[in-house]
Design a protein around this nucleic acid. Structure first.
Length: 515
RNA sequence: GGCCCCAUCGUCUAGAGGCCAAGGACACCACCCUCUCAAGGUGGAGACACGGGUUCGAAUCCCGUUGGGGCUGCCA
């Protein structure tokens, strides 16, 4: 199978209106046991894929998981299929409902909605037990009482890694305290037909007799995944590349349990990596979706950026609405190499989306960052109408919503305290600053507090000081706004008002004089 | 170590044997615009990992090398 060649076809079809959508779905790959298409009883099934996103609640939800969820979601939406959410919490030691909450809220925030679920594997135990019992009864799996230590000790003696099949023919009964292992064929190969990578071959001899039920009776994910994918009639398994090595095991189990039902199509998408090109890790890398939300990234920007990691639309556009992504998304166009999660680029997209908001939308989005728990000013100091007046200027400059409070803090933080470094640079160490502050105070006593009038007054101050406006406004800006950069000065002073402006200028001048 | 995957500017990518003296975007640099900072505009620097094949012709196909990554759990 040549995935890339199919995508040529996809693009040509897409060029013809409507035809792209009617294009037949990806060929249904079959593994060791070929299964006929007719095995699907529902004739509409091939056109209505069922995908699943199956995170394990063992840590916060990171952007890599979000990207995988997004690809699943895009495929389901494009082909009119169903997106199933399944929580893989078979590991009772590490799973925590709190993490599940985080996953659900992050997906919701991103607008990745699920059609079915969330299903919890912890509530489906009977299905895995039944499958295990069947595999054991049919001789496809056997009980094993080797301790992990014993297995490891024996493995170290041998050249080949993995379990050595010690219990294969001991005929042990399947009971508590014993694990269940799948009897992998010694010969032959298992082929994974992957929509992203093509055929990947695994020699069965290199696959150990893997555990499918722990000695405490809990199922292992390999078994649970296959049982659920079968039970939920999943047609496309889209997941991260790290799952590729376990896929032949899943294929083997599928063949043993599916009663001829065709294998789902597999698509192993590349992992997201950090700057050292290692797989993004919850422990190493600070990449929780919730963190980006808290920093003031917009979900639309995040989704747009994430979609472009490992995928790009045929026409090369980069700014895509959700609808456009759905329309353009092709699994066959997903790349095979890992992508670096670049916050700089995310920031760029965020700025684009922030500026694309209407003024009202922007104000609405900024509200939680201005009136929430962690604002830099005392509660109650915030004045929504003052902010609204400056909002367009803020919107133009903010890269994230989290930057918004900093841009308007000078209006609401009392007592006001200019940044020490900025004060030192623009006022203390500038011999011309004193006279300018002095002249500005005099000029602003009576001038109308409108941007135009303020500009004219300060231009005159600058001229008398023999400076360009840009140089003259620096000490005024630091004295009144506390920072060397930020919102335009005249609009800011208008919002601040005459009284506070003059007071701050005088305080700055006084501080200069007492140095 | 074993199995598997991957390889185009620093980064994300376009590229499907001739349309490629390799295009776009982010970041970077310069200039323009400009009350600061942004935004915007213009320009610049910057890549086919290496070696063999195949072919009239290779970023593109094949093989090898190198490099990177994933898996190698009674985690998912």
């Amino acid at each position: 199978m040549q995935p890339r060649s199919r995508s040529v076809q996809a693009r040509r079809c897409a060029a013809l209106p409507r035809l792209g959508r009617l294009r037949a779905p990806s060929p249904r790959p079959v593994a060791t046991l070929p299964a006929p298409m007719s095995a699907i009883s529902d004739p509409s099934a091939p056109l209505a894929p069922r995908v699943r996103f199956a995170p394990s609640p063992t840590g916060y939800f990171h952007v890599g998981g979000a990207r995988t969820a997004l690809f699943n979601w895009l495929l389901a939406r494009r082909l009119g299929g169903r997106f199933v959410l399944r929580i893989e919490d078979t590991d009772r030691e590490r799973s925590d409902p709190a993490w599940t909450e985080g996953i659900l809220s992050a997906l919701t925030w991103l607008g990745i909605t699920w059609d079915e679920g969330p299903f919890f594997q912890s509530e489906r135990r009977h299905l895995y037990d039944a499958a295990a019992k069947r595999l054991f009864a049919e001789g496809r799996a056997y009980a094993c009482d080797c301790s992990p230590e014993a297995v490891r000790a024996r493995t170290e003696q041998r050249a080949t890694p993995g379990y050595d099949g010690f219990c294969r023919d001991r005929g042990l009964a399947f009971e508590r305290g014993r694990a269940l292992r799948y009897r992998v064929p010694d010969e032959g190969m298992t082929v994974v037909h992957d929509l992203v990578r093509g055929d990947v071959e695994f020699q069965n001899a290199t696959i150990e007799d893997f555990v499918i039920v722990k000695s405490n009776g809990d199922p292992l994910f390999v078994l649970a995944v296959v049982v659920d994918d079968l039970d939920m009639a999943i047609t496309h398994v889209i997941r991260a590349e790290e799952h590729l090595p376990t896929t032949p095991k899943a294929v083997l189990l599928w063949d043993a349990l599916a009663d001829g039902r065709p294998l789902p199509a597999f698509a192993h998408v590349p992992v997201l990596v950090n700057e050292r090109r290692q797989k993004l890790s919850k422990r190493r890398d600070r990449v929780a979706v919730e963190d980006y939300r808290a920093l003031g990234y917009l979900p639309e920007a995040m989704v747009n950026y994430l979609a472009l990691l490992g995928w790009s639309p045929a026409d090369g556009r980069e700014v895509l609405s959700r609808e456009e992504m759905i329309e353009e998304f092709r699994l066959e166009d997903v790349l095979r190499s890992p992508a670096f999660f670049d916050e700089r680029r995310l920031l760029h997209f965020n700025g684009l989306y922030l500026r694309g908001l209407s003024q009202a939308e922007f104000i609405e989005h900024a509200r939680p960052f201005l009136q929430g728990e962690h604002v830099p000013w005392a509660p109650g100091r915030f004045d929504a109408s003052v902010f609204a007046a400056l909002a367009p200027l803020v919107q133009e400059r903010a890269g994230t919503l989290g930057e918004v409070p900093g841009l308007v803090a000078f209006l609401f933080v009392e007592p006001f305290e200019p940044d020490a470094d900025a004060f030192a640079k623009a006022i203390s160490s500038d011999v011309g600053a004193g006279p300018i502050l002095q002249a500005t105070i005099a000029a602003l006593e009576s001038v109308e507090f409108s941007p135009a009038a303020l500009r004219q007054a300060i231009e005159e101050v600058a001229e008398r000081a023999g400076r360009k406006l840009g140089k003259a406004q620096a000490p005024i800006r630091v004295a009144t706004m506390g920072r060397a950069t930020g919102l335009p000065l005249f609009e800011s002073l208008e919002a601040l008002g005459r009284e506070r402006t003059l007071e701050r200028l005088k305080v700055a001048l006084g501080r200069l004089g007492s140095l």
